[in-house]
């Protein structure tokens, strides 16, 4: 599904990714663990086409080399990305947010310039699908996104990314800033999505949540892959000690 090989990159002079190899297999959840500043978000950003700039290595998605591709074209290729920090359009309504999520479903040519927001049947269908999956959003479709609670915004961000029916969904810290009950709901949703056959690349700080859904695990430290493997063969306690309390590095 997704194959990252020997990826290096950085912001200007500051290098943040060193020779990273990562593989996401179809229909599985791959969790990337690591302490803050380890390079988890940088890795997702690079895969999605955002800075840090890639200085070496390749990113292959569905057999296609997407390494130098513009971010919007990666979305069209089927790569969905839910950024860290509930990046919804706060001044727009829930429904507008979802419709924007389905931007790539728009008709080509003139239709997109003049077409009403809901004219495209494909977008309409996608919208109905998300409302079905997230009834809470259907109830609040005309609410301005900025006035939703944190958990609702996170759900909206996920629903937005699901609009164009991606084949791989990348989630960056979906539990950040959420109460445990709400975070549990978010992860419940991830389980549902996996059951639907979606491949998922998950970055998560809370090991327990990540382990609940992960099939494969990769541990990032100092911009490098420190360990990778099947989730069942991973010992949580060792992982916790290793990456959060720095038992290994200090």
């Amino acid at each position: 599904m997704l194959q990252v090989s020997g990826l290096s990159g950085g912001y200007g002079d500051i290098r943040v990714l060193w020779d990273v190899d990562l593989r996401v297999r179809p229909g599985r959840v791959t969790a990337v663990l690591g302490r803050n500043g380890a390079g988890k978000t940088s890795l997702l950003n690079a895969v999605a086409g955002f800075p840090p700039g890639v200085t070496g290595g390749t990113i292959t998605f569905d057999g296609r080399d997407v390494t130098g591709m513009a971010p919007h074209r990666r979305v069209r290729a089927g790569l969905g990305y839910v950024q860290e920090g509930k990046q919804v359009f706060r001044q727009r309504t829930v429904e507008d947010n979802l419709l924007l999520g389905g931007f790539t479903l728009a008709r080509s040519g003139l239709g997109r310039w003049t077409g009403g927001r809901k004219r495209s049947p494909a977008r309409r269908e996608a919208l109905d699908r998300q409302y079905e999956r997230f009834p809470m959003l259907a109830e609040r479709r005309h609410t301005v996104a900025g006035s939703l609670s944190g958990g609702q915004q996170q759900m909206l961000a996920i629903a937005q990314a699901l609009m164009p029916a991606p084949r791989l969904l990348m989630l960056d810290e979906p539990s950040a800033g959420l109460a445990p009950v709400i975070a549990a709901e978010v992860f419940e949703m991830i389980t549902v999505l996996r059951a639907d056959g979606l491949s998922i690349l998950l970055v998560e700080q809370v090991v327990e949540y990540a382990m609940r859904v992960a099939d494969d695990v990769a541990v990032v430290d100092n911009g490098r892959i420190a360990a990778a493997g099947d989730a069942r063969s991973f010992d949580d306690t060792a992982v916790i000690n290793e990456i959060y309390l720095g038992a290994g590095s200090r």
């Binding site: 445990p180 090991v207 949540y209 382990m211 609940r212 916790i240």
Partner: peptide
């Protein structure tokens, strides 16, 4: 830091 179920450890 790790999720509620790990609390025992």
């Amino acid at each position: 830091y790790t999720g509620s179920n790990a609390a025992g450890k």
